[in-house]
Computed example of a mutant assay.
Amino acid sequence: MAMAVGESSDDDVISAINTTPLVDVMLVLLIIFLITIPVVTTSIPVSLPKERVEVRETKPENVIISVDPSGNIYWYDARMPNTEALVAKLKEVSKKDPQPEVQVRGDTSSRYEGVGKILLACQRAGITKVAFITEPPPLGG
């Protein structure tokens, strides 16, 4: 047996890592994930509501109660002195058949307390139909 000096033999250790199989496996996994993810992420089909502006006609029998910025309550144009007077008027209205709708108009800068008083008075008087009157959104917005 002779010793080979300076020559490389087949028994030498290869120090470089071959990354080609690793890249091939990663590309195959990427393709598999790209194909299967849209199939796996299904959602329940639902019909979402569309934004709509419903034009409500004010009928003569409807009752309009307003709240100004300082919290004063108005029956049409007449200022109500207190909540008990409002309940008394609403009890008269609640006896009508069919019962009219109470429409609440609250100022944007008023506190919620005034609107809450109206809702409590409607509840105490037995009113079943209450609507909140708002301004329609601006066109195109």
Rank of each mutant, 00 (worst) to 15 (best):
A2V: 05
A88Q: 09
T19E: 02
V53L: 08
S43A: 14
T58H: 01
A85R: 00
M26Q: 13
Y74F: 15
I44E: 08
A88Y: 09
T58S: 02
S15V: 14
G116H: 05
M80W: 03
D77Q: 14
T19I: 05
K50D: 10
N82I: 06
G116P: 01
E54I: 15
N62A: 14
N62D: 15
R105V: 15
T108C: 02
P69S: 07
V93I: 08
G114F: 12
Y76G: 13
F33E: 09
T83A: 14
R52H: 12
I133G: 05
R52T: 15
G140K: 10
V53Q: 04
P60C: 06
E61R: 02
V63W: 01
L48S: 13
V63S: 03
V102E: 03
T83F: 07
S47K: 11
R56V: 09
R56N: 05
S47D: 10
V13K: 12
V39W: 04
L139Y: 02
L139D: 03
L27R: 05
R124F: 00
D10G: 10
V104T: 11
I118L: 03
S8W: 10
G6F: 07
S47E: 11
V39F: 08
D24F: 06
L90K: 01
V104I: 15
E51S: 07
F33K: 08
G114K: 10
L22R: 08
V28C: 14
Q123R: 11
W75L: 04
S8F: 13
R79H: 02
S70N: 09
G140Q: 06
D10Q: 05
V55P: 02
G141D: 09
L86V: 05
I73R: 00
K117V: 06
D24W: 03
R111Y: 09
P136Q: 14
M26E: 14
V115Y: 09
N82V: 07
K95A: 13
G116N: 12
M3S: 11
M26C: 15
L22Y: 12
R52G: 12
E84V: 04
D11Q: 07
D11A: 10
N62L: 08
S70M: 10
A16R: 06
D10T: 07
I64A: 01
T19S: 03
I127R: 00
P49D: 13
P98H: 02
S15T: 15
K95M: 05
I44T: 08
K95C: 01
N18L: 07
